[in-house]
Design a binder for these strands. Structure first.
Lengths: 225, 225
DNA sequence: AGGGTAACCTACTGGCGGTAGGGCGTTACG
DNA sequence: CGTAACGCCCTACCGCCAGTAGGTTACCCT
């Protein structure tokens, strides 16, 4: 998709001489493709250079290092995911009032699992497994976790209570881990649709989340059993 | 711990000449240590050789490759974790009958989070992030997931109903993902005890699990809302 | 004593991430 | 129209590291 419009733009500069910004976008697109099919360790900068019809120093001049290239690719994917989930949740808000939270959870889950299903290959490389530093993977995850956390606190505020912020953060983290794990599992299965995954996910987590919100509205001190 | 008893055993063979089996255990112990402090990519086989007081071909003769060394280390850790959680769950069984499942969940969670807390460094390397192939990480995770899955079906059978095996597998996967994610998150936090984590985890998941079991005993067809 | 084997070593290859330093169009300016 | 500056790009190389070929030494068993 992005690659096609890029090749078109690139064809305009017949002499192979291409402005920095465009070359950078091309390298990011090809890099993501390469990581997806070879994995981080398996992808070589030489091959990326060959595919782009360019020599290695060009890449290092624009991107700095292999690690940074990977981070940029992962950031783009994470941003894409974030937007999809966020907009899905926002669109799901105006439903029957009593189950607004449930509708949001359902819509967000569905968007997440659909994204994972559409990006199978990219998914497993960019999110599961590979980034050399846990720190980087963590910071990418952070964006998604922050979204979940914001939604949780928002829902809690509607209930009028104040939950322990720490517990909210932890719960968001747990939900996100469950999301990723489920998506990875489903990628290895056949005939498991995002809709089914959402059904199961909601069945597992919604009751606990509702109780959490209720204990919040009952005031502090009742969160612990 | 294992390293100390090993150095003792090694001291017995003064000439540096050591039987294969013992050398292998030594390399596995030192390898796990090295992976924990340098990460997979950062750990070099040359350094492992130096630390073991041995040349590289010895390692390759015994372990085959860097990847296989890592797998063996991860397998040992996974097995350790598995035993701890399994025995904790088994020991928690004979409690008040009505909340047997809850006691099991609580005991298992606590054992898991304690393990993660004790092995901080090893944990992040062996489980989060780094293994080059998602396939391998997945297969290691599988052991733990299988345990959770077995516990779930066991609990479901006590309720007398038959749930969709597929959903049980997915739920186990989700729970495991939540476990790992929470453990990783907690490793970066201060003053979050395994007990607190367990509390939060149970609050989030127990209600959904109980409903699942109840819908199971009501017979098939009622799992979907 | 003498073969056979188990444990081990030195020295090398190939590939990859990353870099030094130079070439060559294109544009700006006198 | 010449020339200087700048942006885009390349060839050729370095150091590191996983993995290997082939030889060496101590031990054991007959």
């Amino acid at each position: 998709m992005t690659v096609d419009t890029l090749t078109e733009e690139l064809a305009a500069h017949a002499h192979g001489r291409v402005p920095r910004a465009l070359r950078e976008r091309q390298l990011l697109a090809l890099g993501a493709e390469l990581f997806a099919e070879r994995g981080y360790a398996g992808a070589s900068m030489d091959e990326l250079a060959t595919r782009a019809g360019v020599s290695k120093p060009v890449i290092y001049d624009l991107l700095g290092s292999k690690e940074e290239l990977f981070r940029r690719c992962a950031d783009l994917a994470a941003q894409d995911l974030h937007e999809r989930v966020a907009s899905a949740v926002a669109a799901a808000a105006p439903v029957a009032d009593a189950t607004a939270a449930e509708a949001q959870l359902r819509a967000g889950s569905l968007a997440f699992f659909r994204f994972a299903a559409e990006h199978r290959r990219s998914w497993s490389v960019l999110f599961a497994g590979d980034s050399t530093f846990t720190a980087e993977a963590e910071s990418i995850r952070h964006r998604q976790t922050a979204l979940v956390e914001a939604l949780l606190t928002g829902a809690a505020l509607e209930q009028g209570g104040a939950i322990d912020a720490r517990q909210v953060a932890a719960t968001a983290q747990a939900l996100n881990g469950a999301f990723e794990s489920l998506a990875n599992w489903a990628a290895a299965q056949t005939d498991v649709t995002p809709e089914t995954l959402t059904e199961w996910f909601v069945a597992l987590t919604l009751p606990g989340l509702q109780l959490l919100a209720r204990s919040a509205s009952a005031g502090p001190g009742s969160a612990r059993r």
